[in-house]
Design a protein around this nucleic acid. Structure first.
Lengths: 231, 231, 231, 231
DNA sequence: GATGAATGAGATTTCATTCAT
DNA sequence: AATGAATGAAATCTCATTCAT
């Protein structure tokens, strides 16, 4: 059954979407740069090359509405990323959770390089939301977190059935795996932006290289900090 | 071992400190509730039961100065928490990193219950700082992160010498261990504040109980997500 | 000879200028009345019958920007006054510096009656500027003083070539001539505003009448305080 | 009959005056530097090395009271300067108004070098007063101007009786002579503080040297800008 | 008499939103 | 549909003055 997005679009409608896209991109860059509170509609409109008032024709709810539209695209993309990795993993005979997570971390790092703004918005604004006094914002955040967890869960469930996972609640595990991706990227970003601080060479070199960073995180989380018993 | 703060204080000076404390507490609660940008000095002053102008007699640098004074207390307390756990661990014959971390997580959870505001501020504002365009703010954040890592490191180094740790860069390990404490607390907070969402019982019960939560996180990070090879 | 300002303007642009004019007039009256420091944007906006924020759409640099826009108009008008008188004088066969200055003083007095606010601002604020710690303000003041001196100089140079002037540096002379116009107007204003103080009748009557005042100042500065040698 | 100031003073009273002096000096420097509006009692108290509250024990009328006390000292000193010059001139057989004015200008320049602050206050604040909406301030300004004029008048009256002056109202003449001293000093100050601006060498050298500057102004005002008829 | 902590009115400035064109 | 001028609430910060010590 055809959904809205499959329906043939009038030229008018297509143009409308293009303009909306431009506005979203402008909003992304401003929100990332200034943070939600210091972003101004004036600047968003300027970067989008539209008039300020026009934004109100494309987004309901003013500034906040635009912001949530941006958040939506962020979470959409992240969920796609997770879903992709999971689909690949589930496609094989015997799901390899380590490999799947390693791939996912790599994709997340790539994504960060492509769309740095989106990640920065996430880091600057998303966690704030979960302590907001506005229940609807909290609910939004929870919903989106859940989407990501749910995207990852099938892979973990399959792996669990195969006995590949420690006997711990899978949801909590999924949360932890996802949160640590953010953590890794923040950590890498700090070091990249401010490389002049003295840190151990080893530490630095491991996180600098995307491949090694993904391996590091995967090892940490799948095999643990503790030395293997035989060692 | 006498520090400045042990020196006998004039009544005047003691009173001054008391009032400063009151202002800091008021600031904590407002910053936690509203976030930095929406916190107003008016409200801080009101809750501290002082006039607006008085805040300027106690803190240099206006709103930002007050905010950093609050951040200082947060990081001081967190570093103390870490240092305490590490000191206990190092006091024993053979340092047990798992036990040490477990203790630390427990203390962090307790601390969160005592001073929820401080944690909320941390979560709402700290990460934003590392993407600030103001280099001095980034440097402050890095300095404080480093303090925490450095407080934990001695324990890891000792454990590493005992061959108890996997061969990975200790600094990165320390970062990951510390960041996951925040992550756990955020996770617990979300579930506690909004328990009405459907989640698996097992998941819920594990994270609700501080003891179990600490055990969960310690197991996750020390032993890994993957099932033990023998299993 | 068409300048930009002669170009045909869109209705939009014409309206914009009208509104800017209204704001400038309002600003003039408030700055004159209260002085720069005690003038408030609130009151300027009120008198201009616009909202406070609207001022910021018409002038860059906030309060200071508005103030300098006012100063610009003042100096523009004064320079025009001088230039007019000088042009008339130079148009004749043999420039008569006495007549030229007399005319100029008369025009200045008329201008003061028309635009009292502008003069008051000049007196209240301009000299302060030359002892400002902000070098750019000092430079602005010097630049404007120089403009006025340069507007008057051609006349003096011509007169000097005709042997009509004492052999003294012309720039210093120009300064003195210009400054004394302000001085005269201040003096007249004081007496006009507060005529109840006992002063000699002769003194009073001479300065009250614009024509006599101009003659007095011209005689003073061109022929000197000292009695003519023949007398 | 002994006046208050001739009465022997108790040690207590002498100390009180000394402290008052210190406060006045501090106030002078702050008012000169910042101008009335931006001067703060805090800074005055600091420079005077007293507590802020103490100022209120020494001056009635708070900030404004202190300011007028400073103004009083300024005008006292200026009147003394004028009175001195006039007394010297009147002491001779035949009063020489040119010489008297020349001396006065020289003294004023010296005074400016000794007490620059006082002059700066005069220039920054005094003229503002004559357009104040507060009648008592205007009256104060007029009173002080009159004092200066009255101090100079006897010399002019004597010279006038000797036929040395042009037949013009003496009060207006006195005003003009006094105002031009301020003008000269401002002019010299601007050039001294910002000598990098290109000005004619002649102009510069004449005003730089106090002696030549006094001669210039005296010639200008007594003999006039116009060339002598015989020339 | 000297002090300086406390105060809060009042200033400038920013910006989301509206709405006439 | 697109615009951007107008708005005014609300924020931070300053400082003269008071008054308990």
């Amino acid at each position: 059954m055809a959904t809205d997005s499959d329906a043939p679009l009038s030229r008018r409608e297509r143009e409308r979407r293009t303009r909306r896209q431009a506005m979203l991109r402008a909003a992304e860059s401003v929100f990332a740069e200034k943070g939600y509170d210091h972003a101004t509609l004036e600047e968003i409109a300027e970067r989008a090359e539209f008039g300020k008032g026009t934004l109100y024709n494309y987004f309901e709810g003013g500034k906040e509405g635009i912001f949530f539209a941006v958040l939506d695209t962020i979470y959409d993309e992240l969920c796609d990323l997770i879903a992709e990795s999971v689909a690949e993993a589930l496609a094989s005979d015997r799901v390899d959770p380590r490999a799947c997570y390693h791939t996912l971390v790599g994709k997340a790092i790539d994504f960060y390089h492509d769309r740095e703004d989106l990640f920065v918005i996430l880091i600057k604004e998303a966690y704030r939301m979960c302590f907001s006094h506005d229940a609807s914002k909290v609910a939004y955040f929870q919903r989106q977190q859940e989407r990501m967890v749910n995207a990852l869960l099938p892979m973990l469930q399959q792996a669990d059935e195969n006995g590949a996972l420690r006997d711990l609640p899978l949801e909590a595990m999924a949360h932890l795996l996802i949160e640590n991706i953010d953590g890794l990227i923040v950590h890498r970003a700090i070091m990249a932006n401010h490389p002049n601080r003295p840190t151990s060479c080893q530490h630095q070199s491991i996180l600098d290289d995307p491949e090694k960073a993904a391996t590091f995180l995967t090892t940490m989380l799948f095999d643990g900090v503790a030395a293997p018993p035989s060692a």
